[in-house]
Amino acid sequence: MPEKKVLVADDDPDILLALRIRLESAGYQVVTAMDGSQALEKIRSANPDLAILDINMPEGNAFTILDTLRAEGLRALPVIFLTADAQEKSQVKAFHRGIRHYLTKPYDPKTLLVLVEHALNEASGRAA
């Protein structure tokens, strides 16, 4: 089975590196983006199986990315929000956009890996 591809978008290069190490060691192929427009571009070109998005990034936040993807018909891409924003209103807003996986920083790496696996299984279940 080919390895799954995960796009990680965060404007903090340290977090990007940490996530790359963590996800690659778990057997995933990782594509990274440092802002919203790069994330959109890489989602279109690299066709990832899952996206992990920080909410607040330059050149388009995670909500703008979601809206653009939906407008382009890419509704099926599973998305995990990984953010320092722990405000209830942001969580409710995400929930209302269909985001069920909302993880706040500092995150537990084991929880993140379980969520990634769960979201990917769910998506492949839907596709089957």
Binding site: D12, D14, I15, A18, L19, I21, R22, A84, A86, T104, K105, P106, Y107, P109
Partner: peptide, 14 residues
């Protein structure tokens, strides 16, 4: 403070 703390903890953990 959450973002730098996330890096700190994740790199220790790695």
């Amino acid at each position: 403070l959450r973002s730098p703390l996330a890096s700190l903890k994740e790199f220790i953990s790695i």
